[in-house]
Amino acid sequence: MGKIVAVTLVLITIASAVPILAHKWVPPDDISTHGYLIDEQMSDTMVEAGICFVAAQMILAAFIWMFSNRKPGDKIRNFPGGAMGLVIGAFVLVGLEVLALGFFGSKAWAAIYFTPPSADALPVQVQAGQFAFYFRYQGPDGKFGPIHPDKINESTQNFYGLDMDDDPASKDDIVTAEMGIPVNKEVRLLMHSKDLGHSFYVRELRIQQDFVPGLDLQMHFTATKVGRYEIVCTQLCGLGHYNMKAYLNVMSQPDYDAWIKQQASMQ
């Protein structure tokens, strides 16, 4: 009986590993300048976790095989050093693994979070709220007007709470429901939430960043491929969470210029 369990375990392990080794489920094309670092990190993690998984299952199967014929009265052998040694050994091994992953991943992390965006990056503000994203561009004056939460009025399409009458900086701000950006141009994304926790996730950009209520967060990225991609909320935020999305439209510079002009005329 024990031998059957051991063989089954080996078979399950191989069956689980084959589709992954065959690269059946690959991530969508990367369209960002930093994405390859994330992809490398993901594949390093996958390889490491995969080796650990296969090794652990094989060792388990081997032990089951070896001790399947144990008779009552046989001596039980202990791990050298007893349970304490086992726990310390596991602790050090897993700790080293996590540290190594963190060390190799720090490059990708630092490229996104510890490197400031270039001075000519295009600032785009994104506001998340149940259950939609809205984006804001500075307009010709290069300034975002102040936000007045008490002036937020969805029935007049004033999603940001701008005071068009009294704030000169708000007058030329452009608020859109779709995020348009030029290709190969760095974007500085300024994120805030209107209500609660949300997330900004674009698979192709390899970016996933939570919105934290009360915090102004920043990201920066450069998209390298023209196309229309989905921005989705990946932080459960309520009843309409499943439908909280917007589109990222990566355009050539002339297309972007025309788009932003058209958006400005719709304000």
């Binding site: 939609a132 029935s155 439908n243 917007a246 719709m266």
Partner: peptide, 25 residues
């Protein structure tokens, strides 16, 4: 009256493609 961008909901955006709707205050 600001025009309404319904691109988040493609089914509705398609309905108003020819004549965009605006806020109705």
């Amino acid at each position: 009256q600001r025009p309404i961008d319904m691109s988040k909901e493609p089914a509705c955006a398609a309905v108003h493609k020819a004549s965009p709707v605006t806020a109705e205050t």
